[in-house]
Nucleic acid binder design. Sequence first.
DNA 1: CTGAAAGCGCTTACAG
DNA 2: CTGAAAGCGCTTACAG
Lengths: 339, 339
Amino acid sequence: MATIKEIAAEAGVSVMTVSNVINQNRSRVSPATEARVREILEKHHYVRNMAARTLSSKSSRIVGLLLPIWYEDSASMLLDPYAGQLVGYLEEFLRARQYYPMILSFKNSDQVLTLRKTWQIDGMILVMPHNDAVTHDLVENSAFPLVVLDRFYDDLDMLSVGINDRRGGYLAARHLLDLGHRRIGFAGPSIFESSVIQDRYQGFLDALKEAKAPLNPAWVFDGTFHQAGGEEAGRRILEMEDAPTAVIASEDLIACGIIRSLQEQGYSVPEKLSVIGFDDSLPSRLISPALTTVGQDIRLKADTAASMLFQAMTDSAYRKDRRVLEVRLIQRDSVRKID
Amino acid sequence: MATIKEIAAEAGVSVMTVSNVINQNRSRVSPATEARVREILEKHHYVRNMAARTLSSKSSRIVGLLLPIWYEDSASMLLDPYAGQLVGYLEEFLRARQYYPMILSFKNSDQVLTLRKTWQIDGMILVMPHNDAVTHDLVENSAFPLVVLDRFYDDLDMLSVGINDRRGGYLAARHLLDLGHRRIGFAGPSIFESSVIQDRYQGFLDALKEAKAPLNPAWVFDGTFHQAGGEEAGRRILEMEDAPTAVIASEDLIACGIIRSLQEQGYSVPEKLSVIGFDDSLPSRLISPALTTVGQDIRLKADTAASMLFQAMTDSAYRKDRRVLEVRLIQRDSVRKID
DNA sequence: CTGAAAGCGCTTACAG
DNA sequence: CTGAAAGCGCTTACAG
């Protein structure tokens, strides 16, 4: 394992000239010298020692990928396909630029701050914020470049990228209304806790209002979590005298649960009930009927977040920005026309 | 940010005594000194500088989580829920022991070797080996602790943990035979390329042979990939005059595809065809009918792999071991009894 | 049980 | 354009 010192000796230059070649400080070394050094570097398959570089420069080129732990007993968020996909794209982006992704599941901001010091981490991306208090706390106490996904706080200077959730909710409801539905429900986890869900719900309300369609509170299934929650909501719908003809779920897994419970009772989707999901995740194409859903471009989201982080790492004045990515309705087979 | 030096000055001891306290070298420091140092450490919220530690000790406590890139155009393997889950559990295991997970998608072993040198990585875990040539190459050239999941080469000294695939294939076929099926098919990707698929297929053959059931080559759907492949296989089954009454898929996604294509043609599962999948992944509980599948304990797999890695990191003689985890049939609703 | 010294492999000002 | 020196914050033998 050749070191800079050995390379320098063989090339007959100083250690710092080799360092300048490696770090592409073109202006600081003549083309001839650079070529000679580079040749020797390659001959020895020189590999940079990042620990040494980090120690002297205080920058590690490590980017922390933060995954909050939602429940006490669960492993990390990577169980969620959306998170896995995001992390995959982020890793690809970082690798292409010689940055190194380190993942961390955490429950409180101290764990994050400690990791940052431990490794002199250059920047972090918060992938699936769950708890608003923890996220808020982290944003407030992070004196380093941090990009937050899917969450934004007006009262803080922060970098965030999200999607137009409100428009997503609107598009879903608008689609159902256009097809003649007037009795439309909404199912999601604790609508009043997360701004993302709130926005989706708000968009749904916007469309209803615009179309002067009624909203029956009994059709709002608040506190619906994941597949099991969806199944429960589906059962309740079947028991209702005054049931909705369509329901929008705040995530695909909930929509899948609703569809499953209807099918298990012998009902067919979309004949009995039209269902629209959110996220266009893997399951939406797996089930039958394929799920109509509000989709987002996850790769674009990852690239946008990483680009913002890179800008923040070079420009210390760049600490407040918000990108809102567009969203589109992906029509598949879980919705029908009402006469 | 306090350093060891400052702590040492305040405690009135040498730098190396502080280092010994931090590194739990109990025997090398008196209880009284240790208590005093520890108190000052906590007062200053001392956080270890891993770059400095790595530089001087040549060990980083970083564990590389390797994710091969299967296709040119895809992002990393984290798109696969199985990989995401595994990485999540591994991260949890490592974090609990103060090790740091760095993820790397790669196409060839050079990228891995370079990363190892770059960060003096202590050990690696290969999560979803795909290409046998690359994996073989990596195992051969890794002079460092490496644990490979789901793959084993008799001709090499290596550490691996997999599941009893052959028994899995056997259990699936046995279950169908017990329910009266005699016409059973098998669908999987290139059966003769991956040992995992080969083993599952072999177990399937074992059961057929034992029961003296016939095997029609037309019922073996070789080269079936993911959901799209499953859908194609489903369509072909529907067109057959001499169709099987049941089919075993080498992974859940394929089984889901088969079921979807039947349902789209108006047929019902398991009435028209019984289907068994492999892996007990998220989708298997999402679809209707819920998928009967061969399940494995992913958390146990992650913990086993990580434990083996830790042993290898402390014991340089431990370089050859193979753990085969048991497998079980998870009965759900995609299989019926034949009269 | 404790310490002084050397060194890990780089980068960072500072000179020239 | 090039270099000599100091230093980043630890751990590692080696002494005592």
